[in-house]
Every structure is written in C-alpha cells, then in structure tokens.
Amino acid sequence: MTVSHNLDGAALDLELKGLIADVLGLDPDQAQAFGPDSGLFGHLPELDSMAVAGLLTEMEDRLGIVIEDDDVDGEMLETYGALRAFAEAKLGGR
C-alpha cells in the first residue's frame, strides 16, 4: 500500500476522488467532476455505513492518517468539500 506524504492540494484531490471512484465503481474521469458541494453520505444511496467505513479505512491507508471515532460525523461525510477539508486538516496536523 502506497502511503502518500506531503500531498499538495491537487494530489490530495486526485487521491480522494480516485478513492471515491473505487468505492462507487465510477470512471476516474467521472469522479473528477466532483465539486466541493457534491453530496456524499445521505445523497448517494450506494454509500451506506459499510461503504463509508471502507472509504475511511482506505483513506487511512492511502493518506497515512488515523481517523478516530470522534472525527467521524455527518457533516464531514456530507459533501466532497467537507471530506477534503477533513483530510487536509488531518494531514496538516501530523
């Protein structure tokens, strides 16, 4: 598993969108169309708790971060922008 350090904005975007594409079975190009307001948990029926858990666990692996219980809330998972901001904060806080 590749752990990506020093991800800048564009690389983080690519990694996160790739991950969402993997979970939802989208073309990578399709996932690149996600914007900050694109809805995730609660908006995409495929994204149930099991899929979200897989997404977060894979984020830990690929980004080299640890996600605690308290980090996970509805807000952080609601939109692509919120998930990205969360990942950025985790990466910055190491």
Binding site: S49, V52, A53, T57, V72, G74
Partner: peptide, 24 residues
C-alpha cells in the same frame, strides 16, 4: 485488526445515524 477496524467503524457510523452513541 484491519478487518475488525472496518467492521466496527461501519457499526459506529450506522449507530450514529440512528442516534445511538457507540464507541470503538
């Protein structure tokens, strides 16, 4: 450990959706 982590996380997320607090 990774298997359990993923499954427990799914449960805590589902619990939160249902308004129940469960910790890992």
């Amino acid at each position: 450990p990774k298997l359990l982590r993923g499954m427990i996380r799914a449960r805590t997320i589902a619990a939160r959706e249902a308004g129940i607090t469960e910790t890992t």
